[in-house]
Simulated assay, not measured.
Amino acid sequence: MSEPQILSLLPVRTAAQTDGSALGELDRATWSTLHAVQPRPQAPYEPFFDERHRPEDFLVAEAVTGAGEERVAGYLRLARPTPLACNAHVRQIQGLAVAEWARGSGIARALLRASYTEARRQGAGRLTLRVLGHNAPARALYASEGFAVEGVLPGEFFLHGRYVDDVLMGRSLTP
């Protein structure tokens, strides 16, 4: 099956409960040792949404393809890093995935920029994330969007026979 051509991107939106199946498929299709610390998901698959992963925590990017269909092209999970009141001004990106067929079309950047708006709407003044040290493409994207490395946990994960750093990045959401 050939990959669809993207005609246009739709505005990023908050996920709906009905997106669970498509987001689960996207999550499984984009699983990679470049960013995953958990094993590859195996059938039977858990529901994408649960008590800790609610639809309102996800931003969804859709694209209109050359065939005229709207397809989920990516998602970003935006959540509070802790339940503490003293940390309520921070939001954390806890997942970002873009379909292989949609890469290079600005989906990840659109999701990131939508997350800034959503985080500010929620009252956040700071946005953080964690990225594996060997994920150079993601680190470059985040740096180009104003994220700075704020810490490194050397050898935090042992993945596929080697130690991998956990890189902590953050940026201000205030002008």
Rank of each mutant, 00 (worst) to 15 (best):
G24E: 00
V167D: 02
E25W: 01
Q94E: 15
G95R: 05
G66H: 09
V98I: 09
Y116K: 03
L111P: 01
S105M: 02
R130S: 09
Y116T: 03
A29L: 13
S172K: 05
P175Y: 06
E150R: 14
T128E: 15
V98L: 07
E150L: 11
G20K: 03
T82V: 11
A73G: 06
F158H: 15
L76T: 00
P154S: 13
G68V: 11
T18G: 02
P83R: 06
M169R: 03
A138Y: 07
R80N: 09
A63F: 01
Y163G: 08
P81E: 01
A79D: 06
H53P: 04
F58R: 00
F58K: 01
L159P: 06
T65V: 11
Q38I: 13
V12A: 04
A67M: 07
A148T: 09
S32K: 05
E56A: 12
I107E: 03
G146H: 04
Y75M: 08
G146P: 01
Y45W: 14
I107S: 02
Q94Y: 00
G133S: 07
A79N: 02
A108E: 04
T33F: 10
D50C: 09
D166S: 10
P44D: 06
E62D: 13
P137Y: 11
T128Y: 05
T14P: 00
E56T: 07
Q5Y: 04
A36I: 05
L141S: 10
Y45T: 09
R103P: 01
G133L: 07
V90F: 05
D57Y: 05
P81I: 11
D19H: 02
A114H: 01
R52E: 12
L34W: 09
E69Q: 14
S2H: 13
G66Q: 12
G155D: 12
A43W: 10
V149F: 06
R28P: 00
H134Y: 01
